[in-house]
């Protein structure tokens, strides 16, 4: 939880960090939120392409876009495709490619 009950705290990694900075957003960026939404809805509200995100961390736990439930007060990190490491599996950062 980020300590502010009417917003969600959002950070972006890799190119998304640059995108947030280019928009003049602070890190973390605070997005007003009144009620629960899923990961796709969060990206719509942030104006971030679905293809630019492979997985999310919600309150430090990795979860897929469709499975995520984001509530006011949460901290969310956007993980783009392209993150290496054995932890991709150990953390659950993996989205099955379309068609596989």
């Amino acid at each position: 939880m980020n300590g502010t009950p009417d917003t969600v705290e959002v950070v972006g990694f890799m190119d998304l960090a640059g995108l947030f900075r280019a928009r003049g957003w602070t890190s973390p960026h605070r997005l007003p939120l009144a009620g629960p939404i899923d990961g796709f809805e969060l990206l719509v509200r942030l104006d971030v392409s679905f293809d630019a995100v492979e997985s999310l961390f919600v309150n430090h736990k990795a979860i897929g876009l469709a499975d995520a439930v984001i509530r006011p007060g949460d901290r969310v990190a956007l993980v783009p495709p392209g993150v290496p490491g054995p932890h991709r599996f150990c953390l659950g950062i993996w989205r099955r490619p379309s068609g596989s």
């Binding site: 430090h60 993980v79 495709p81 290496p84």
Partner: peptide, 24 residues
């Protein structure tokens, strides 16, 4: 995206923020 883009641009050091976020 990992072998063709992510590693090429940011190297393995991109994991600092990711693993920090995971609390690991």
């Amino acid at each position: 995206p990992v072998s063709g883009q992510g590693l090429k641009k940011y190297g393995t050091a991109v994991l600092v923020n990711v693993i920090n976020e995971a609390g690991g």
